[in-house]
Simulated assay, not measured.
Amino acid sequence: MISTVIITGTRKTLYVYIDGKENKITTFRSNVKEALTANDIEIGSKDKVTPGLDSNIKDKDKIYVKKAVNVELKLDGKTLTIQSAENDVETMLTAEGIQLNALDRVSPSKEEPLGEGLQVEITRVESKEVKEVKPIDFATVTKSDTSLQQGNNKVIQQGKPGEKTVTTRVVYENGKEVSKKVISEVVTKKPVEKVIAMGTTGSYTPSRGSNMRYSNVMRMKATAYTSDYASTGKNPGDPYFGITATGTTARRNTNGYSTIAVDPRVIPLGTKVYVEGYGYAIAEDTGGAIKGNIIDVYFDSNNQANNWGVKSVNVYILK
């Protein structure tokens, strides 16, 4: 009778929940591990048991067992099979001592619940800022130079390249470059322009005479006039007979400068020119019919003026 009382006093009824499913067992054992083993309930190394396996038990206790599941993990070029009884991906990684960097990507998300056969991939993401010193090409500018003949050029300042520091953000995934973006450019040395002087002075040699230099040439219509009434509306004896708009006396000087009438908006008064087929002249006069690209060359007689007629000539603006 005494023996029966002792046996009845150490017998316990336990409720074991394996992944939420209830199992009712009886045991005479004193702790969780012995009770489960005695009832053929296997506990894997990664299974979670609450309370712990070494905990003492008493009648009517509840024991919770969460079985570990197999998870496939792709990480750092390797594929691992991990057994885990954690609740989600994040706690599994923490339990396995797998460190995540700030930019690393986890797929599926870290909040994904664990399940048998779940596939998890970690993409290692690294961002680096790379600084490079790069040259800056110099610009080439040209400037007109009236001291040089047309077609002649002269380098008056040599160009020098500048420098800039370019900062680029490079992103790597699993060690491979996937993107590159320039985030700043700082000029550390400004380039120096190359300056070239371009000659603008033309050179022309009449059929008779020496070489002359000119700044511009215009194709113009050339008529002829004299000091007579038909051309000027004035007769000899008039105080303004033969007097030009600039106050000079109109003249034809084959060995020097003759008088021509111009439109001052095209050729300013006082400008020295060379008229093709006529010779050297000064823009000293104006006329009511002289508008635009027209000049009126002066002759001493009507016969000379009539012989000239109307021509298209090159007018060289002299230096």
Rank of each mutant, 00 (worst) to 15 (best):
Phe138Leu: 13
Ala38Trp: 00
Leu114Trp: 01
Thr165Cys: 05
Ala281Ser: 10
Thr13His: 06
Val262Tyr: 00
Gly151Glu: 08
Val171Ala: 05
Val166Leu: 11
Ile183Glu: 12
Val16Phe: 00
Gly292Gln: 04
Tyr278Gln: 02
Gly175Tyr: 02
Gly202Cys: 09
Ala85Leu: 06
Thr13Ser: 11
Gln157Met: 09
Asn23Glu: 10
Arg265Gly: 11
Lys60His: 08
Glu116Val: 06
Ser258His: 03
Ser84Lys: 04
Ile260Ala: 05
Ala289Asn: 14
Gly292Leu: 02
Val195Met: 09
Asp300Trp: 01
Lys66Gly: 10
Gln150Pro: 00
Val313Leu: 02
Ile290Thr: 01
Ser3Tyr: 10
Thr167Lys: 12
Ala85Arg: 04
Lys110Thr: 15
Pro113Gly: 09
Tyr257Val: 08
Ser301Gly: 06
Leu80Trp: 04
Val120Ala: 13
Lys67Thr: 14
Glu72Tyr: 13
Glu126Asp: 14
Gln83Ile: 03
Asp296Thr: 00
Thr249Pro: 04
Gln157Cys: 09
Ala35His: 03
Leu100Lys: 09
Tyr64Lys: 14
Val275Thr: 01
Val16His: 01
Leu36Pro: 10
Val315Thr: 07
Thr167Ile: 06
Val315Phe: 05
Thr259Tyr: 03
Ile282Ser: 12
Leu53His: 07
Val187Lys: 14
Lys311Glu: 01
Thr146Phe: 11
Gln304Asn: 13
Lys272Asn: 14
Ile282Phe: 12
Glu42Ala: 12
Gly202Asn: 09
Leu53Thr: 07
Thr13Asn: 11
Thr142Gln: 15
Val217Cys: 08
Val49His: 03
Glu116Ala: 08
Asn253Gly: 06
Ala222Lys: 01
Tyr316Glu: 01
Lys67Val: 09
Arg208Asn: 15
Glu163Gly: 05
Tyr229Trp: 14
Gly199His: 03
